[in-house]
Design a protein around this nucleic acid. Structure first.
Lengths: 195, 195
DNA sequence: CCTCTGATGTAGGCGATGTCTACTTGCGAC
DNA sequence: GTCGCAAGTAGACATCGCCTACATCAGAGG
């Protein structure tokens, strides 16, 4: 009888905990959560979460995996126009767009306390990062082939990634107004070829 | 007799605490510190820090102020060549250089948990940010006047700031190798004028 | 249909932390 | 010389992450 709210076994505690955490941080960017708080929210004992996550860090890693997946998917979905220049712009726009639409998720996704060289990523997470790199590389290559951007393709990719990431970060930190986003993104493409 | 290490009044506890915190995080990027730990390090009681800082957050704010000062100073010191293009490159190089030389400081300086729109900065910190903006604006203006960069000066400034900040961040996060830094920085200047 | 085992939950405890309050000490102005 | 106020101490409280020992129950195998 799943109607009883006081049944011993929860059913899908793992998902409930992840959902609660997501709801909390989405509601307030500067919020954090404790495992005990999530347990309370799910109406289980404070030790129950440990049956699904080795520690607090692992719960966040699970969230990161989920968010990285939707982050990459959002960028992939932005592509597909027949114009390589348009695609490149759309890719950057999707990157910054995700950051602005989900500031908490983006910030945790790139939180140095979670993801860090010394702190090797999950295989699944690493795979998503590779997908993302491929997405960027292919789009840049197409743009280069179309003459929309110039320079060593590798370098252009890294430069654009840096630009877009920095833009998103600085906007979220409040150093730049969101109104700068469009200008900066388009300015990239309006630079003619040179060396 | 300041020789006694067990004297009741410490002398300069505030500075000692800040120094200890700085030493700790410099020694290990993924390290954090507790106020009690700092107190232990300074050999005072666990409540002593509260005579100098309202809470843990305020101590970090004090550190941020100090680091932002040296961050801006490092960039100012990098300027002064007679070549505007060289100056622009030096500015970006100093930005990323600080991040790589002092990863912990840079990351805390731009930690969303500390500096955030909702969380208004100290007047002193805000002033330093203004100084930094001025530095960037002037250097970009000079470069524009010399024809080294093109486009709306405001936009170019924001775009370069984003690029350099993103580059520093992605390198510290381990997404980009430090070897990319030089390439990206110089690639910026090798783009000819266009619109 | 019954049993029994392992996954999932509970209760309680440990050490640590941030922060508060009440008390003490002693430097330096008068 | 004394005396107030800044700067220190001791102790307490709520909370947290994490651990251990125990309870429950769903479902596989007989």
């Amino acid at each position: 009888m799943p109607t009883s709210s006081a049944r011993y076994h929860h059913g899908d505690l793992r998902e409930t905990l992840l959902g609660a955490a997501e709801r909390m941080i989405d509601a307030d960017v500067s919020r954090t959560f404790s495992l005990r708080e999530l347990a309370r929210e799910a109406e289980v004992s404070h030790a129950a979460p440990y049956k699904h996550f080795a520690d607090r860090h692992q719960l966040i890693v699970a969230l990161d995996e989920r968010w990285m997946r939707e982050f990459v998917a959002a960028q992939a979905a932005a592509l597909g126009s027949s114009d390589p220049g348009q695609d490149l712009l759309a890719l950057g726009s999707a990157y910054v767009g995700y950051a602005i639409a989900h500031p908490s998720r983006f910030l945790i996704l790139f939180d140095p306390a979670i993801n860090r060289p010394g702190h090797p990523p999950t295989p699944a997470f690493a795979e998503l990062v590779r997908e993302h790199a491929t997405l960027l590389r292919d789009t840049v290559a197409a743009a280069a082939a179309a003459g929309v951007v110039s320079g060593r393709s590798e370098t252009v990719g890294v430069a654009l990634w840096s630009q877009v990431h920095g833009l998103a970060t600085l906007v979220l930190l409040g150093y730049l107004p969101a109104t700068d986003v469009k200008d900066v993104l388009t300015s990239v493409l309006h630079r003619g070829p040179s060396s």
